[in-house]
């Protein structure tokens, strides 16, 4: 534990050295997140008999499992920063993002944010039965745009997503899209608005090389517009290209927080060792 805290402060000292003029957008204060999972594996298989037995003998508790996913995380993110979150599977990265977005309440500690962070995940499905175009309109309205603004940005979004490169896909239902196309459209919709804080959870991973380059460019623009971007990705290359600061989470705790080069180097050493 002690050794870990030392690395953490050492690294953060180099990033906060820039001066006191920076404005925090996300302040995370000793956050613990415990969430409950319904219908988890307790009590053998999921057959009706087993379920009945569970109700008769063990009460409700049998079907609910508690997961302590984040165990005391503290950091501050500033305006104009792009922060990469890295860590092995199940280390609590996505859970932390959802807490920052205000979707999972912290069971201890608190998350303070400027404005309303937007979370962009791979599963952020809109309506699959509707055409891409209508999904764009819906998504924009859901982000609080007026109908006039929606009309104005729709062509840009479609062009940016590039879904029309192989024919007129924007008028086809989204269920006919490949997973990459769907992800591209979703990212394009979310990126159409100026966000104070944008949280991207693996959303760039499914696009092809060309789209990834374009979306990385868009992330840079969003940062230039005084936003803060969080990026969860297993593609270390993406993190290196877009984020100058990285936070390494391991089993719900911060292992390191600092410049991407240093944190990633340590992370890769760790991953190769085990």
């Amino acid at each position: 534990m002690a050794e870990q805290t030392v690395t953490q402060t050492d690294l953060s000292a180099t990033t906060t050295g820039a001066g006191g003029s920076r404005i925090p957008t996300v302040v995370v204060d000793d956050v613990h997140i415990v969430y409950r999972v319904h219908g988890a594996g307790a009590g053998g298989n999921g057959s009706p008999v087993a379920a009945l037995k569970r109700i008769v003998t063990g009460g409700k508790t049998g079907a609910i499992t508690e997961v302590h996913a984040v165990k005391g995380v503290t950091f501050t993110a500033y305006r104009g920063e792009a922060i990469g979150l890295i860590g092995s599977n199940g280390s609590g990265k996505s859970t932390l993002l959802r807490a920052i977005a205000g979707l999972l309440p912290a069971s201890r500690g608190a998350v303070y944010t400027q404005g309303q962070p937007s979370l962009l995940g791979v599963n952020a499905a809109l309506l699959n039965d509707l055409s891409g175009e209508r999904n764009v309109a819906l998504g924009c309205l859901a982000m609080g745009m007026t109908p006039a603004q929606v009309k104005q940005v729709t062509p840009d979004i479609i062009t940016f997503s590039g879904i029309n490169e192989r024919g007129d896909f924007s008028s086809l239902p989204m269920r006919t899209y490949s997973s990459g196309m769907g992800a591209r459209l979703r990212f394009s919709i979310a990126a159409a608005k100026k966000h104070d804080v944008l949280l991207i959870d693996e959303a760039l991973a499914t696009g092809d090389v060309r789209f990834r380059r374009r979306s990385e460019q868009r992330v840079r623009e969003l940062r230039a517009e005084a936003g803060t971007v969080f990026l969860v990705s297993h593609g270390i290359g993406t993190i290196r290209d877009t984020c100058e600061r990285s936070i390494w989470l391991e089993s719900g705790l911060i292992r390191a927080d600092g410049p991407t080069d240093e944190v990633v180097a340590e992370y890769e050493k760790f991953m190769n060792r085990t």
Binding site: A101, G102, L103, Q116, L119, A124, A125, L126, M143
Partner: peptide, 9 residues
């Protein structure tokens, strides 16, 4: 849930 988790309204 997908919509709720992705967008704020």
């Amino acid at each position: 849930l997908g919509l709720i988790r992705a967008l704020h309204f």
